[in-house]
């Protein structure tokens, strides 16, 4: 029997010899550091804001983010969340985006958030005209889902040489390398082409249908004045996509710290209680 297995094993080894599995995978992602990667790290909200700008001006022409709504941008933990904070010079309460470190502020409901309203209004989304029943376009409201660039999968493929641009809602969770993978793809083009495809060493199979999206520096003019180098834009959009995939990360980590401290205290007390109960009992 054992001999038979050995023979079978040898035969199979010949058959399987030299499988080209490895060539199919892209290179491991670049070693890039993001502030959210450490166990207690949080998002760099300025980068998330800039990343949204890159998404809105570049990525969103082909990629949907169907699980996000414009309101998400202004919800607690979002890049445009507004807080009512006291201005220490004037003593007045005023609304501002983001909570400055160490400050207390009342979260302003996203329904009243002018930034989110303005961002949403900048996109046209389809709707049904209730008097005619026809499909029309109207400016988006905060409660609308992100505009889908294509009506359906076929339209998306038709516009992209048959390739389907993936939805980006959870892209950093759906790719093994996460945000670093996104960054590597965006900065990993070699400049060569094979037919209609582009060589990108970080992409599985090394040939990607997406033309280099961040082809030149300054493609986006950042509203905060940051110089939009290709590297900067790739970093920012990767950070934004990570936020989009995991918007409650900061709340999660904060609660995690509290829970673990609590459990450590509880464990210590339970250990003492356990010892006290068993005191005098040999075991």
């Amino acid at each position: 029997m054992l001999r038979r297995i050995a023979i079978a094993a040898a035969v199979a080894a010949v058959a399987l010899g030299g499988s080209a599995y490895a060539a199919n995978e892209g290179r491991p992602p670049k070693d890039v550091h993001f502030s959210f990667q450490s166990p207690l790290g949080s998002y760099d909200m300025a980068a998330v804001q800039r990343g949204f700008q890159v998404y809105a001006q570049v990525c969103s022409t082909c990629h949907s983010m169907e699980h996000l709504s414009y309101r998400n941008l202004g919800e607690p933990g979002g890049p445009f969340a507004e807080y009512s904070v006291r201005n220490h010079q004037t003593g007045e309460m005023e609304n501002r985006v983001g909570l400055p470190a160490g400050e207390h502020g009342e979260y302003v409901d996203v329904v009243n958030n002018p930034y989110v309203r303005a961002i949403a209004a900048g996109f046209q989304v389809p709707d049904i005209d209730q008097t005619t029943g026809e499909v029309t376009q109207r400016p988006a409201r905060p409660s609308d889902h992100f505009r889908n660039p294509f009506a359906n999968e076929y339209a998306a493929r038709a516009a992209n040489n048959g390739a389907l641009p993936p939805d980006l809602s959870v892209i950093t969770l759906a790719r093994a390398g996460g945000a670093a993978y996104v960054f590597s793809i965006l900065t990993g083009y070699t400049g060569e082409m094979r037919g209609t495809q582009y060589v990108n060493d970080y992409f599985p199979g090394r040939l990607i249908s997406m033309p280099p999206p961040l082809a030149s520096d300054g493609l986006v003019t950042y509203s905060d004045g940051t110089t939009a180098t290709r590297d900067q834009m790739a970093r920012d959009v990767a950070q934004y996509l990570q936020w989009a995939a995991d918007p409650h990360m900061e709340a999660r980590k904060t609660m995690g710290v509290q829970v673990i401290i609590f459990l450590l205290v509880l464990s210590a007390l339970l250990y003492l209680a356990y010892k006290a109960v068993w005191r005098g009992q040999s075991h």
């Binding site: 609590f262 205290v265 509880l266 007390l269 339970l270 003492l272 209680a273 006290a276």
Partner: peptide
């Protein structure tokens, strides 16, 4: 110890 452990557990 028992009261403390019980109280912390109840809060949790």
């Amino acid at each position: 110890i028992f009261i403390a452990a019980g109280a912390v557990g109840a809060v949790g």
